[in-house]
């Protein structure tokens, strides 16, 4: 294989990892606030269809990304209303959100089947973005770099900012946070909206960049991979970044090794690796217990002031 092929494989890995990273970052913030939103797949699909429809009707691909994020955030507010204001069960509501999002995207996407849209061009100028070697670093659209910036921003926000501290407090001990005067419900609303916007953005990346088209169930379960990734990363942004690229690499290498006909590892084994790794990490977390490795203490529990 030539160097060119390695560069091309590397770029495929980055493209595969980017939307998973974005969706998982959003979910990480949501879960850090103590809420489990299993509706990532549904929000991604709505983001995908909203992004694609806006991009094809207006011709502005960047507008499509904004619309995707807005659609994801809007759908997440339905979830937030149910689980925060009405204290509905988070697991059931999240699953319902995925089913609902799948249906809504299928219905609204019907007129857009069989169309395509112009991708966003590379962010960096011509000599860098199509250099045979440097394109591995500079050959991507703005969303890829945005995903990296978002990782830094989320890591900083959670670790070093005051609102991030409040968010974590709400996720670890909602009653205590409430007692010292933090608005638990409002913080969670904001976290869910952020998670929804990122899920929508990730979905739009599928319909506008990975496969620039709309077809029913376009994301084909990537939302669930994003959810697994949050657990895999033990709720840490930097590990999330590594995990997303690992998942992307495994998904790509599975296909590449099959296409090359090399059989040192059965491709079926590679295909199950991300899930196997998640199970292993979960087991390790359960064995080790405390020490910052565990899930936010209030994850999935409803909060009632004074309750």
């Amino acid at each position: 294989m030539t160097l060119d092929v390695y560069v091309s494989i590397f770029m495929t890995v980055v493209i595969a990892a980017t939307p998973i990273l974005i969706a998982a970052l959003g979910e990480l913030v949501v879960e850090k606030s103590g809420v489990l939103n299993l509706g990532v797949e549904g929000m991604m699909l709505c983001g995908a269809v909203a992004g694609f429809s806006i991009a094809t009707t207006t011709g502005a691909t960047s507008g499509g990304y904004l619309a995707g994020a807005a659609a994801g955030a809007a759908l997440s507010m339905v979830f937030a209303l149910l689980v925060l204001s009405l204290s509905a069960n988070q697991v059931a509501t999240g699953l319902a959100l995925t089913i609902f999002g799948t249906g809504v995207s299928s219905l609204t996407g019907r007129p857009f089947v069989g169309k395509t849209v112009q991708r966003l061009g590379p962010l960096f100028p011509h000599p860098l973005s199509d250099h045979p070697l440097l394109r591995a670093l500079f050959g991507y659209d703005a969303i890829v770099y945005l995903s990296l910036v978002l990782t830094v921003a989320v890591a900083w926000f959670l670790a070093a900012s005051r609102p991030g501290l409040v968010l974590r407090a709400v996720g670890e001990g909602d009653a205590a946070a409430h007692a010292i005067g933090h608005p638990v419900i409002r913080v969670r609303y904001a976290a869910i909206a952020f998670g929804g916007a990122l899920a929508g953005l990730a979905g739009a990346y599928y319909s506008l960049a990975v496969t620039p088209m709309w077809a029913d169930r376009l994301t084909a379960g990537r939302g669930w991979i994003a959810l697994a990734l949050v657990v895999f990363a033990a709720w840490r942004p930097w590990r999330l970044l590594a995990g997303a690229y690992l998942f992307g690499a495994v998904m790509t290498l599975e296909l590449q090794s099959k296409a090359a006909g090399v059989g040192f590892v059965p491709p079926e084994f590679l295909a199950m690796l991300p899930y196997l790794a998640t199970v292993v990490v979960l087991t390790l977390i359960a064995l080790r217990g405390a020490g910052g490795q565990r899930a936010p203490a209030c994850l999935g529990k409803a909060f009632r002031a004074g309750g």
Partner: peptide, 21 residues
């Protein structure tokens, strides 16, 4: 072999893998 009838992102990556090879 993709082991699926329908997974757009996987189909696209599969095509790229074949082209790379």
């Amino acid at each position: 072999w993709l082991s699926t009838w329908y997974d757009p992102a996987k189909e696209a990556d599969g095509a790229k893998a074949l082209l790379d090879q």
